[in-house]
Write a protein that binds this DNA or RNA. Structure first.
Lengths: 334, 334
DNA sequence: TTCTAGCCTGCAAGCGCTGTCATCGAAGTC
DNA sequence: GACTTCGATGACAGCGCTTGCAGGCTAGAA
């Protein structure tokens, strides 16, 4: 910056004021400074300004992984919104217990970002307390945190509508498949299952625990086993509702392998509206992941700027049932 | 830090030395400082240390988007490696021309990270020159940059082996589908197509341009059109090689819709080994995306530490042909 | 002309760390 | 016992910016 000042024949203060767009700089000086800065390809050292202002110009995001459809879509929504705000994006992906302990122990985000977005992260009470220690604004994304700024969808209501759709098609035996939560990171399945069960209860159907099934991760034949178990029940389901589209894709593959026709013999409904859902013709509940990311950033900005009430604002985004080919009426006589 | 020093009854210098793990601190002092730091939940202000050391403890990643399988997998590989190195991850997703111009104009990464990883980003010469201006180490990921540290797979060789596999199965009419490059961001398709063509040439087959087809993006019926065009050729292909698995998934859907059996009537081969490829039973060329990310970080670390020769090291990771159910011999008499 | 009110601009004091140098005491040497 | 050596610690000067304050300059008012 001193170089720029020298080249423009002004003081560093003036360069600083110019570059930050303060209005107390005359047009001629501004022009000189700007061209000097351009000629020298000057870029400000944020560390130095942060030190003075206490602001980092960075937003940190904490998520349980980076490779899932939902999370990468949410990030995609955040990126342009952040750029527009002139903020940089710092990503903390914390997957295993070890990393997790490390993160909450060292709190690396502290004083290293202006806000922390906690995305789809089921926090323990201790972890939550630790984050409160951070001394930086927290925004919860894809999860509801009482009294805290949050952006999310109403999973329970969405699942309720999904199951209702199946009920309306005439299904009475509806199974619910969820992922087996190995890591303790899952969070939404509870709400989705709750919505499903509520729809059944509303319809006067009794809850049959043998129709709720947990399926282990990607590897292995967990899905085939689950399908086998369901299809060999005394009274097998005519519809299968999965907690996520990912699960539904695997389910569709397993059903195809088992020569069970969809939606002829069973209907399948997912949750997410993953890009592949269209390709696979999967009926699903669309949750606006990109929009969620974008909105989260908007909320974060107002939290940082300390706008009125932003600190406890809750934004609930809508979900949509997207009917495709994987659902239909149950087989007659079924 | 002053607080910690006061509480531990030592000077800030000693706190600094302790927290950085320098060995010139006695065990008793170290213990006192560490517990004081813990009690106060102290976390260092990186801005301040950066200002002194000139190191930010951050690595920036430039990528064309965040939501593709490959890029999010690569990020997944980077995250743990970075954490281990105590580095933070700064993500710049630059998708449209406007963002792109902005990024290269303002060079926000400059002095804001210790290195920049350029991932799958087809740079214009001007952009490349601009990055050279950065004054920070560059590492190219999933692309080869002459004379620069790069980590990538040999797309051409992989595609060559893919096509060779189809040839070995007996196919002679093999089509190649690539995405239509709307944005100018694509880069690998050229190499993959080159490998495909080379395999054909090696087998003494003449190149038939009508078998190379560009398919527009996700929206619309581009894929159905492409399939229609190929299948109505005088002599239609018996095998279809797609530039990416994503494309292959859409292709499989289109073929199913068109009642073309796979691999009975046509074989389909993808490229990537996307998570869904297993589910879909797609034969594909696996590229180790996660490993690519991890390796890129390892290389970045040695570039930052200025290890011998790191600045021009090239690491080529292997690809694997993964045979699954979507490929088989051509229909007899075909 | 002299005075006052603005407008710009420069000066200088930090922001919270790191790293050099000086200091101090204890242990080792002869 | 006097001297050296060395390990452990503290003092202090910045790193590159921002920002309150002071000062110089111009212009309109008296």
């Amino acid at each position: 910056m001193a170089d720029v000042a020298h080249r423009a024949g002004v003081s560093v203060s003036t360069v600083s004021r110019t570059l930050r767009g303060l209005s107390t700089v005359s047009d001629t000086t501004r022009a000189r400074v700007e061209s000097a800065a351009r000629e020298l390809s000057f870029a400000i050292t944020r560390s130095a300004s942060s030190l003075v202002t206490g602001r980092t110009g960075r937003v940190a995001v904490l998520m349980p992984n980076l490779a899932s459809w939902f999370l990468s879509s949410a990030l995609s929504g955040m990126a342009p919104a952040l750029r527009e705000a002139g903020l940089d994006l710092l990503v903390y992906s914390v997957s295993d217990v070890h990393e997790r302990a490390d993160f909450f122990d060292r709190l690396p985000a502290r004083r290293n970002a202006d806000a922390l977005l906690v995305v789809s992260f089921a926090l323990t009470p201790a972890e939550r307390a630790r984050l409160d220690d951070l001394g930086m604004p927290l925004v919860f994304v894809s999860q509801h945190a009482p009294g805290r700024p949050s952006v999310y969808v109403d999973d329970e209501d969405a699942a309720l509508r999904g199951t209702r759709h199946l009920l309306n098609l005439g299904h009475r035996r509806i199974a619910f498949l969820q992922t087996f939560d190995e890591t303790g990171f899952a969070w939404s399945s509870k709400n989705r299952l709750a919505g499903h069960l509520r729809a059944l209860a509303d319809a006067g159907l009794e809850h049959d625990p043998s129709l709720v099934m947990s399926v282990p991760g990607w590897k292995g034949s967990g899905m085939a086993t689950a399908v086998g178990r369901l299809m060999s029940l005394q009274s097998p389901p005519t519809a299968l509702f999965t907690e996520t589209d990912d699960l539904a894709f695997r389910l569709l593959a397993a059903l195809r392998a088992a020569n069970v026709s969809v939606p002829g013999q069973v209907s399948v409904m997912g949750f997410d509206d993953h890009v592949m859902a269209g390709v696979m013709g999967l009926t699903t509940l669309a949750q606006p992941a990109v929009e969620l990311g974008r909105t989260a950033i908007a909320l974060t900005r107002s939290v940082i700027d300390d706008s009125d009430g932003a600190h406890e604002r809750h934004i609930v985004l809508p979900t949509e049932l997207v009917p495709r080919g994987s659902t239909g009426p149950p087989p007659t006589g079924g």
